[in-house]
Design a binder for these strands. Sequence first.
DNA 1: CCTCCACAGGAAGCGCAGGAGT
DNA 2: ACTCCTGCGCTTCCTGTGGAGG
Length: 399
Amino acid sequence: MPSFDEFTRESKIFRDRDVLSPHYVPDILPFREHQLRELMSSLAPALMGKKPRNLFIYGKTGTGKTCSVRQVAKKFEEKSTNGKAAIIYLNCRIHNKPYRVMDKVAKTVLAGFDKQGYGLPQIYEGLLKWAGDGRHLIIILDEIDMIKHLDELVYTLTRANDELKSGGISIIGISNKTLLKDELDPRTKSSLYERELVFPSYSANELQKILQQRAELGFKAGAFTPGAINLAGAIAGQESGDARYALKILSRAAEIAEETGKDKITDAEVKSARDMVELDIVKEQIEKLPENHQLVLYAVAKLSATGSRYARLEGEGENDGYLFSGEIYEEYVQLSKKLRRPSKTARSYRSYLNDLEMLGLLTTVESGKGIRGHTKLIRLGHPAQEVMRILSKSMEGGG
DNA sequence: CCTCCACAGGAAGCGCAGGAGT
DNA sequence: ACTCCTGCGCTTCCTGTGGAGG
């Protein structure tokens, strides 16, 4: 019989788990002074009754975009006590259409719109009336690239500004897509990009400082070594400069330390945490792959595990472990047959291979020096056993 | 040298699902 | 609710590449 003591016993590692979670917003954002100042200076006009210019924020994942904006939004709300300015944060993954955005804005800002069932024209009129009294609204659109018909939304909002004599509506767009600019209507582009702000990736050094800060808040004194923090920062810095990834490694390391009964996070925990986080990411990637991609990947994994049926390459160690494109296709066809699914053409199969390579799930090499004419040699990017385990679970459940 | 094999990957067309317009 | 349109995944067809074999 297990005892509750086992689970309620105070942690030897954690002081406050929330501090390590990806949703935690720290009071101090290191290395973002410039961005915070820029944000504040672009919002400040609204506090003085002037219309802020629209702002577009760009930066890769885990560079502190959302964190910074939310923090500034909070400060803005504290300052704006006269009811003449409002700020609203929306994640466009959820509010991904013009109507949904407008609806949400109306429900949070306008009185009487909290019930459902208002059409766009009513919402629009409502907003005009609200802003017409000399009020300013700032709409933050996080992950703005997820919005369908962004052109339409931006057009509607800028048109509202044109109709207003006093007051106004400003947009802060946040995205991690560089190419978004090219997909937009020129007019949308020029109004959305009135002002731009870039969040660069963190360096290893900066990540180490960030982790240090979190570790001091989240872990007990002496529950981590400086080396472990630096290693986690170095790994994340080398991979991506993504602070979220760095934090993931650190909190995983902490969990490992706790589960194994250690009272300290060391390099060893960080190293195994790295592998686990890596595998988590791979798992996520594989699970949302389309069916045929999964089947092809499974075929590669299976052949990697059982060995190529064709002769080994001319005794060259460096090419060892590569599979021929042709045999993988055959395996894929058989696999499909076994699962009673129609297999696709060899041509399609080649596209799948390219997709999988693009995702880093496998590596391919063009043959050329004396091997089988013109073909591709393929090798799995991750341990075959793990890939097969993930896939067999995913294919069972996913249909 | 030519031809065949075993592939790579571009171009075009086809059927389908889902959104827009009416 | 109906058609119309559009994007997407696939297939078909095709041209190119480079070693093997006659």
